[in-house]
Design a protein around this nucleic acid. Structure first.
Length: 539
RNA sequence: GUCCCGGUAGCUCAGUCGGAUAGAGCAACAGCCUUCUAAGCUGUGGGUCGGGCGUUCGAAUCGCUCCCGGGACGCCA
């Protein structure tokens, strides 16, 4: 956009001085202070070292060779900044483009690349809780960002339906069932103690009566498979209510089917050795901290093996990049999986792991420890009921995923304007109201006639949108979109308060302002949609 | 002991490949609704950017080191 235009101007001017610069070397920043113009560059200070000249002198030589047709003026300031003061038309010329492209404004060029984003991937042994909700928000927004940036995206959920956890679930559920039948049996040591399990046991008892009162493998198998499939259904429903829809559910049980594990072992053979009865994989050859056990001395394989099969499966289906969104407790897992994939010839950059830091629950100013045993976790379902989908998603996304997150229950339950999502949605609602009342005026989409400081700073913020989308995608940081939204909403509210948009005494200006409102509404709505947050037309 | 994340206003957090006077929201205080939605706007106060050393025209940002908080380091999943 405009940054690119300015970069090229500077580059051309530098070439006339006999300097060859790449466009990306010219850093254009938006000025914080209006006295510093609309945009600024520090290029003269960067160049002064290699030219061994005073930066202000370099700046004046550049300016003398710069195309100034779209400038009101150019100034050298401070130690050697070049400040650009643009003509209003240089900014407002983008308004027709925004209105014409609509929600496609800011889209990236087609990438011919497929990104597989795996997130949530909770065990089907209980309901989703707040930790999962953060992963769901971040993963889903990443998917939306990649889609907007031109990638093919696959959203994937991996279901661990064949491991120790499911065994625990089966035993716990079965025990609850037997208890309901009046048979005395203690819950397993590592069992699941949540209330939900009792309800499900009751449901199954109503369905099958005492058919499974004999303790045997068939009985246990029934409770394992029914329990996990019931929980998976609940998980899917909760996610759908949270506006997170997965394209693919992959099941561990399917991954392990046939002889997938033994075939994998054959291929990994060159990288293995046996020590004290266990088989190790030489992941250190590819940068891991230590070699990893893949077959325990008791002959069972570790979880690492099916995970490798699964990742190879994802790559084999169609994916140029795998992104795993995982909780912070998984960070030790990154090195070994990257190593394993390299054994199959994939570069280390094929797999990216986005670590989501912990969520701490704060209630009455104190941390609330969540415990599987007592089942006191706050569920996603409860979260949605308490604060709503929009507020919850915005809450989770508005902070960098790499920072520890304090979720203040009292604040969330207040349901007041303290939550920034309302601020942004309200801005959209106000614009919508003005536009619908303004239909009696013709919509001027040209941008001509806009000139006040409020109008131009709003336009500058609109122009910045494509850059924000790109930046948020390449850094995998959706919170940057939230920051952008807050700034945009703030400009909208100021503008709305300072300026009477629908002005009977000046229909021409009204039409132009409606055009600006329309363009702003388009971008605000699209930015919110990247976070999975709705843009209401009234509140 | 090793690795990861963090330490910026009373609280929660931003801070554009290192830039101009370090910002926003909340909280506090003072104003603004006969006119498009006051879930809003305007203004005020509030800082040893965890400490130290270094790199350079310039450091919250980069390097080294120390301190504090959270997490991970198993033939667990």
């Amino acid at each position: 956009m405009i940054e690119n235009y300015l970069q090229t101007l500077v580059k051309d001017a530098a070439e006339q001085l006999g300097l060859s610069l790449s466009v990306s070397q010219v850093v254009i920043e938006t000025s914080k202070d209006a006295a510093h113009g609309d945009y600024a560059t520090n290029i003269a200070m960067q160049l002064s070292r290699q030219l061994r000249k005073n930066p202000r002198e370099v700046a004046s030589q550049l300016i003398a060779r710069l195309d100034q047709s779209k400038m009101e003026k150019i100034e050298i300031a401070g130690p050697g900044f070049i400040n650009f003061f643009l003509k209003p038309s240089a900014l407002t010329q983008y308004i027709p483009l925004i209105i014409e492209q609509g929600e496609n404004f800011g889209n990236g060029a087609k990438q011919q690349k497929t990104v597989n984003i795996e997130f949530v991937s909770a065990n089907p042994t209980g309901k989703l809780h707040l930790g999962h909700a953060r992963g769901a928000s971040v993963g889903d927004s990443l998917a939306r960002l990649f889609t907007k940036s031109g990638y093919e995206v696959i959203k994937e959920f991996y279901v661990n339906d064949a491991g120790v956890q499911i065994n625990n679930l089966g035993h716990s559920l079965y025990t609850r069932y037997l208890n309901l039948l009046g048979i005395n049996k203690a819950m397993p040591e590592n069992g699941y103690f949540s209330e939900d399990l009792i309800a499900i046991a009751q449901m199954l008892m109503d369905e099958v009566g005492d058919a499974y009162k004999e303790e045997n493998d068939t009985s246990l198998e029934f409770f394992k498979s029914r329990g996990s499939s019931i929980f998976l259904d609940i998980i899917r429903q909760d996610l759908a209510a949270f506006k997170v829809i997965f394209d693919v559910y992959s099941f561990e049980s399917k991954v392990k089917e046939k002889d997938a594990i033994s075939r994998l072992l054959t291929k990994l053979a060159p990288y293995t050795y046996v020590e004290e009865g266990a088989t190790f994989l030489r992941t250190t050859q590819f940068g891991d901290d230590k070699d990893r056990v893949i077959i325990k001395s008791n002959g069972e394989h570790t979880y690492f093996l099916p995970d490798i099969v699964y990742h190879l499966d994802k790559l084999g289906r169609k994916a140029d990049l795998l992104i795993d969104v995982l909780g912070a407790d998984h960070h030790g897992y990154i090195g070994r999986m990257k190593s394993a994939l390299q054994m199959f010839g994939y570069g280390p950059e094929t797999l990216e792991v986005q670590i989501i830091q912990m969520v701490r629950i704060i209630k009455d100013g104190e941390e609330l420890k969540m415990s599987k045993r007592t089942g006191n976790a706050i569920t996603l379902e409860e979260l949605i009921a308490e604060v709503g989908v929009d507020a919850a998603r915005y809450f989770f996304i508005a902070k960098s995923a790499s920072t520890h997150f304090d979720f203040d229950l009292n604040l969330a339950q207040e349901r007041t304007s303290a939550n920034p999502v309302y601020y942004a949605q309200y801005a959209h609602a106000r614009l919508s109201a003005v536009l619908s009342k303004g239909t009696i005026y013709p919509l001027d989409t040209s941008g001509n006639g806009l000139h006040t400081a409020e109008e131009l700073s709003l336009v500058k913020q609109l122009i910045a949108y494509p850059g924000v989308v790109l930046d948020a995608t390449t850094t995998r940081e959706p919170y940057k979109v939230a920051n952008y939204i807050q700034k945009l909403a703030s400009l909208v509210h100021s503008y709305y308060t300072e300026v009477r948009i629908l002005d009977d005494t000046n229909p021409l200006l009204t039409s132009a302002r409606l055009g600006l409102s329309k363009a702003t509404q388009i971008i605000l709505k699209d930015a919110l949609s990247l976070l999975g947050v709705s843009a209401p037309i009234s509140m």
